[in-house]
Each structure stands twice: as C-alpha cells, then as structure tokens.
Design a protein around this nucleic acid. Structure first.
Lengths: 206, 206
DNA sequence: TTATTTATTTACCAATCGGTAAATAAATAA
DNA sequence: TTATTTATTTACCGATTGGTAAATAAATAA
C-alpha cells in the first residue's frame, strides 16, 4: 500500500501513514520507555506535527497503549505462542531461547517494552506502570496454568510446584531483559537459557 | 549527634542535616529511579529549599551518585558480603535468600536502586544508566571470579562454566527485582531462590 | 558596634513537558 | 465557482524540568 487512501475521503488527504507512525512510536517506547520518550521525540521521528499525532492517537497514554498492543501481537507474539508447545520443557525452551535471540537481535532495541517500559517512574505514570505489571502477571498466570497442566499430565518431578516453577521461569525471563539492556551478548543469554533447561525438573521432550 | 555543628563554624549555621537529607534522597531515588524523582520532590521531602540542596550536593547527578554510594554500602552491603561465604553454594544462598527478604521488606521500597534506577530512560540520562550498568557488571565480574575459585577448588560439577553460572545467578537476581516491584510476595521470591538452589550444580555445603 | 562569613529565603532563568486554539491548505460536493 | 470537509502548519498554553542570582538572616571575629 502506498498511503492510507481508503475510500478517497472527503477533506484534505493525510500526509502520513498512521500505521508507520505507530511502528515508529513502538520502537521509540521500546527503546526508551514511557517517560524516556517525549511527544517531541515522537513527532520528530515521525516527521509530523503534534496536532496530527494527537488527532490520530488521542494522548501520550493511549499512543503508548496502542504501541504496546502492536508490540505484544508483533515482535513478541512468540511469547504467547510458546504456551502452545506440546510439553512444559518445550514451552520454556521456546520462551527462553527465542527471548535470548529476540533481546539481542540486530536492528532492534536490546530491551523488552513490557518488562522495562515503566519500571521505576514518577507518580504521574503509575497508571502505565500498573498496566505493564498487569501484562506481566497475566503472562505468569497463563504460564502457571500451563505448568499445572504439565504437572497433571505427569511431566514434572514429584514435589514440583507449578506456580513456583512458572514464577522462576518468569523471573529468569525478566532478568534476561535487564541483561540485554546492559549489553549482554546473545550467546551468553542463550547459555543462561540452557542452564535453566539443563536443570529442568521433569521430562525433557515429547 | 544533634546537628552538623563541627567546629561551630563561622557563618550562619545549617538548619538541616546533610546526612539525613542524603538518606531521604536515597529512599526517593530507590523508590522512583533517577528520572522519576525530581529536584522538587527531593527538596519537598527534605524540607529545604533548592539552593541549599545544590550548595550541599552540587547537581542532581552528583546527588544520585552519593545516594547510590550510600545505598551500596548500606542497605545492600550484604550483596558484596555474600561473596565471602565459604562455598559457592553458600554465596548464592546468601545472595538470593537475603535479596528475596530485602526486596520485600516492610518500610522499604520493593525495588533495587542499582537494577532499576535508570533502566529505560531518555538520552539525557544515559550517563546515569551507564553508571548503573557498570555497577551491575562489576558485581557479575566479582561473582564470576568467585565461581571460578569454587570451580578450581572442585566444588562445581564437571562441565560447569563459572561465567555462565555467575550470569545465570545475576540474571535471576535481577529478575527478582522486577518481580518485587511488580508486587511479588516474599515467600514467592524465597521459593524462586530455593528453586535455583535445589538444582545447584555442585556441592551443597561445606 | 561593625565587618565578615555562611546559609537561608525569595524570586527568577531558559528549556522542556504534555496538550491545544486558530489559521491555513488541499481535497470533494454542490 | 463556491461551500464544505478534513488535515495541515504555526503559534501558543500553563506546568514542570534542572539550576541560579540576589537579597536577607544568623552566626563569629574584630
């Protein structure tokens, strides 16, 4: 598609592509977080003026929300998809190995928008912070359910607590985000992931 | 000491205690990070005016630096101290169990200033971000050396890479900070720590 | 008492924050 | 051509950012 001329609207045509602008916003928020990215940064990167941005996306908060939605269903869609792997081991394998690659990919911020978008922030941004906390908790809840299922199917060693196992994996996953932001190499993060897998308390494959 | 009247100086006496103000700054930065804490927040919490703060601490950056120094040598002194434990297992045991308690202690921010002080921030604060990255890397380097020593002393299973093991532990440690900020309970973080210890690749005690 | 020293308070600085009113430009409908 | 619709640009809003100049208050030294 060249431009967003659907139905060749009535008034003056848009000069910019909202989808491309949202992509730009996603990458800026991804790299610098909510408070670390200003509306001026955003409009400058998009090549548009502030009124255009506000007319299309409403506010900084709603722009972040839409950028987050795009991020979750795009770059890190593999995270939710990992839950569909046939065994608990495979779930964690896919989650951690692909995360190691994702977090250190060339041409992408070495960061995770969900984990780092608003960790420590001013009181004014607590709503955004809580929104990201909810996202992380929702994933951990889903991961717990997946571990519970594996437990019920006899995949895990006796005495393994599914909720603890899920929180342990989520903790490593979040720690890997900090490692990537701090400059850790892809190979070193892959080795961290392999360390988790090497001590896996249950069946390895299926 | 009642006040900072050393040598009962010449001019008008100070109305505030710089040590107490630094404590206040440490706790605010600890809770809200570098960019999440404004100079106005700081002076309000200290009960003083901005010129007094600038006269005593120079700039926001240098105040953060001094607050960080106090934080490292005070609340989280146990982290460096853990390296002195007699075995690698004990080192990690102390590090992770005490961190779980520290990160969820009552009357303290459920956060870690070194890990979260400036994770994703604007370009203007990159110097602070890099300062914290250096702190984390210095600890990981020391932890690697400690694991190497344990390896040389035959404590670790054959095939265990000391650097990988140290990065794995550091990753879990950093992940626990995000968990705590997100509301994880003390018991759940202790269980994460115990999960790491339960799969420890080497001798358990000494 | 007077001068000097130091720390205070008050008032302000330019720059930036998120956000918007008003004017203008470019399209279609009549 | 003229009216209407929509998106643009320009210019601005009050609040806040980190930081400071100038005036004032409280102590000691002379």
């Amino acid at each position: 598609m060249e431009n967003n001329s659907i139905k060749k609207g009535r008034g003056r045509p848009s000069k910019f592509d909202p989808a491309a602008s949202l992509e730009t916003a996603m990458r800026l928020f991804w790299a610098h977080g909510y408070e670390g990215t200003s509306m001026a940064d955003l409009t400058a990167a998009m090549g548009i003026n502030k009124p255009s941005l506000y007319a299309t996306f409403g506010s900084k908060e709603s722009l972040f929300e839409k950028a987050l939605e795009k991020y979750v269903s795009g770059p890190i869609a593999f995270v939710a998809a990992a839950l569909n792997e046939p065994t608990a081991y495979r779930v964690v394998e896919k989650l951690l190995l692909e995360s190691a690659e994702f977090l250190t990919a060339a041409n992408s911020p070495h960061s995770c928008m969900v984990n780092m978008g608003a960790l420590s922030c001013s009181k004014e941004s607590e709503q955004i912070k809580n929104m990201l906390i909810s996202r992380r908790q929702a994933f951990e809840t889903a991961l717990t359910a997946r571990m519970q299922q594996a437990h019920d199917e006899g995949e895990l060693e006796a005495g393994t607590n599914p909720a603890t196992l899920a929180k342990y994996v989520a903790t490593v996953h979040q720690g890997m985000s900090i490692q990537a932001t701090s400059g850790a190499s892809q190979e070193s993060l892959l080795e961290v992931a392999r360390t988790v897998l090497a001590h896996w308390p249950g069946k390895r494959a299926n």
